[in-house]
Write a protein that binds this DNA or RNA. Structure first.
Lengths: 337, 337
DNA sequence: CTGAAAGCGCTTACAG
DNA sequence: CTGAAAGCGCTTACAG
C-alpha cells in the first residue's frame, strides 16, 4: 500500500504539511483560495487518498462502527444490517461486520468480534441479538470498552449496563397478533418457538403469546420448541401434526416465533396435505421481505427492520441521543390466518 | 478511546517498549520466558488491547478486507457475505461492508465505497455484482488501488483487469437447467429476466437460457423483462399471464433469472388461480436458503453461495492463488417444475 | 493566514 | 536477548 502521502501533496503544491492538511481534510480554518486550489490540484494530480489509519491515530477517533449479528444470511439480521449501513454511510462512517454464528456456539465468536472491534477502536459497537451469547468475558470486555469512551448499542432489548438500546416490543407485538386473530374468531392456538433461554427475542415473544392467550381467553393447545430457523419450524410443524392427530384435533392457528419458523411449519403442513389458511392457519412474526409475494400470503407482525437498524446507527453515532421508545410494528393479515 | 497503551504496559512490566511489543504482538524473536510472563501479566492487569490503527500504520498493512454488495438484504448477497466473513474471520481479518443499493443508482455508491476502502487501506476489496455500476471513475480508482498494492477480487465474472475473480458458471448452469426440464418433456418455456445490461449475471443467465433453448430444440414463447427482484418477478408473472391468454396458451414452464423473481412470479400465478407445478411450471436459480422448506418446492439451480464467498476471501488474502475454475452448481428438482 | 514541531501508538532495523 | 530511536501518515495546539 504505497499510497501517495500528504507530504508529497504538500511538496508538490509548495506548501507546508499543515496547510495541505487543513485544505484537504476539513478544518474550520481554510487557507486562502489560491493556495487551497493549488493544494487540491496537487492532490488530484497525484491521486491522493487520505490514510484513514493515520487520521484515526492523530484524531483518536476512527469513524468506524462495529456490528455483530447472529447470522447475516437470515433476512431479519440482514435487514437490520442494511439499515445500519445506510445511516452510517450517510454520515461517512464505515461498518465493520462480524457474524456470531449459531445461537448456541456463539459465545466465543461474539467475544472475538468485540475484541477485534476494540482493537480497531471502532467508535461504537452494535450488538444485534447476542444477549445470551454474552458470557462474563464479553460483558466485562464491553464494560471496559465503554469505560474507555466506546459506545455500545444493543438491538432488541437493553442488556448492557450503561449502553444505549433500540428495544423492540416483541412481547406486546405478539400479544397484539394473538388478539387480532382471536378477535377474528380463531380461538385455538399452538405456538412454535426456539430453544429456551437462548435468545431474549425468543423468550419475549413466547411471553407475548401467553399474554395474548390470557387476555383473549383463547385456548393454547400446544407449545413446541425447536431450532429458531426454517428447518426448526418444519420439524416443529411435523411434531405438532402428530400431536394434533393423537390428541386434540383441528381447527388450530399455529403461531411461530418468527417468519422463517412459520414458513417451515407451513411447508410441513402442506406436505401433509393440509391447505394453509383453510385446514390450518399459520402466522409468523417480523414480516421479512420475502413474504411480500408468497402464496398463500403469510399473516405476520411487521417490524420495521431497516428503521431499527437505522436507529441503532444513530445511537451509535450520537452519544447524546436518549434511547428511543420501544419499536412497535403492526399486524399484517394475509391469507394464511 | 483512552485505551491502555503499549508503553504503559512496558513501564508496568519494567521493560522497554520494543520488548513489550515483541512479547505481545507476535514476532519471531520472543524474549526470555520470565520477561515475557511479566509483560503478559502487565497487559492482562491493565487490560491492554493493541491499537490496530497504530499497528496498521507501523506495519503498513491493515488486515482489513472491504466487501461491496448490491443489497445485503437479498439472500444471494447475504450468503456470499457470510462466506467471506467466515473465511476472513478464521484468518483474523476484519470485514468492512458497503452496500451499493439498487442496480440502477449504484454507481456513485460503489464509487464512495471503493474510495472509503482505499482510505482505510484495506488489504483487498471484494466486489460482488457491481460490474455495471462501475463507471470509469470506479474503474480508474480500482486500478490506482491495485497499482499501490491493493488486491481486487470480483465475484461472478472477471471484469477488472489485473484483478482476481471467482467466476460463476451462470450461463452453463441455466442451459443445464433448461436441458434437464426439456429432457423431462417440458418443451414450451418462458423466461423472466432483469433489465438489460444492468447486471452481468442477468445477461449471462439469459444467454444460458437461449443456449438451452437452441440445444434442446424446445420452444421459447416469451421473454419478459422487469426488475431483478421479487416484486419484479411478480409483475413479470402478471404480464406473462396476459400474454399467454391473448396469444399462445399453456402448458408452459416459466424460468426466471433468479429465485426471488421465480417466487414472485409463482405468487402471481397462484393469485390467478393456477396450481404451481400442475397448471404452470416454474423454476428459479441460486437455491437461496429460504427455498429449503417452501411448499410447493421451487425447482432451481443450486449455487454454493457460501463457498463462493469463501473463495473470494481466500483470493483476497492470498495474492499467489490462481483464479479457481468457474463455480458450477447443480439442478435441484422440486415440485414446481 | 501559514509553518515548525510535537504527538497519536505502534513496529523494526540497528546497536549494544 | 534487550533497548534507543526512527519512522509509519496524519492533526493540531502553538508561534510567528
Amino acid at each position: 500500500m504505497a499510497m501517495v502521502t500528504l507530504s508529497e501533496v504538500a511538496r508538490h503544491a509548495g506548501v507546508s504539511l499543515a496547510t495541505a492538511s487543513r485544505v484537504l481534510n476539513g478544518s474550520a480554518r481554510t487557507p486562502a483560495a489560491d493556495i487551497a486550489d493549488r493544494v487540491r490540484a496537487a492532490a488530484t494530480t497525484l491521486g491522493y487518498v487520505p490514510n484513514a489509519q493515520a487520521q484515526a491515530l492523530a484524531r483518536s477517533s476512527t469513524s468506524l462502527i462495529g456490528l455483530v449479528v447472529h447470522d447475516i444470511a437470515d433476512e431479519y439480521f440482514a435487514s437490520i444490517a442494511k439499515g445500519v449501513q445506510r445511516v452510517a454511510a450517510d454520515r461517512d462512517r464505515q461498518l465493520l461486520l462480524a457474524v456470531a454464528g449459531s445461537i448456541h456456539s456463539a459465545a466465543p465468536e461474539v467475544d472475538r468480534a468485540v475484541t477485534a472491534f476494540a482493537a480497531h477502536r471502532t467508535d461504537a459497537i452494535i450488538l444485534a441479538g447476542s444477549r445470551t451469547a454474552a458470557t462474563d468475558a464479553v460483558r466485562s470486555r464491553l464494560e471496559a470498552y465503554q469505560g474507555r469512551g466506546g459506545r455500545v448499542v444493543t438491538v432488541g432489548q437493553s442488556w448492557v449496563p450503561g449502553a444505549a438500546a433500540v428495544r423492540i416490543a416483541n412481547r406486546e407485538g405478539m400479544a397484539e397478533l394473538v388478539a387480532a386473530l382471536a378477535a377474528d374468531g380463531q380461538r385455538r392456538f399452538a405456538y412454535l418457538t426456539g430453544p429456551d433461554a437462548a435468545l431474549a427475542t425468543v423468550d419475549d415473544r413466547l411471553a407475548g403469546y401467553l399474554d395474548g392467550i390470557v387476555a383473549t381467553g383463547a385456548e393454547s393447545v400446544a407449545l413446541i420448541r425447536g431450532e429458531f430457523s426454517m428447518a426448526g419450524g418444519h420439524e416443529c410443524g411435523q411434531r405438532l401434526l402428530e400431536q394434533l392427530t393423537s390428541t386434540r384435533r383441528r381447527p388450530v392457528t399455529v403461531l411461530a416465533g418468527n417468519d422463517v419458523m412459520a414458513l417451515g411449519a407451513a411447508s410441513a403442513f402442506a406436505e401433509a396435505g393440509l391447505r394453509i389458511g383453510l385446514d390450518i392457519k399459520v402466522a409468523g412474526f417480523d414480516d421479512i421481505g420475502v413474504l411480500t409475494h408468497l402464496s398463500p400470503g403469510l399473516t405476520t407482525y411487521r417490524l420495521p427492520l431497516g428503521e431499527i437498524g437505522g436507529l441503532a446507527a444513530e445511537l451509535a453515532m450520537d452519544p447524546e441521543l436518549p434511547d428511543p421508545a420501544p419499536v412497535t410494528g403492526e399486524v399484517i393479515r394475509r391469507a394464511s390466518a
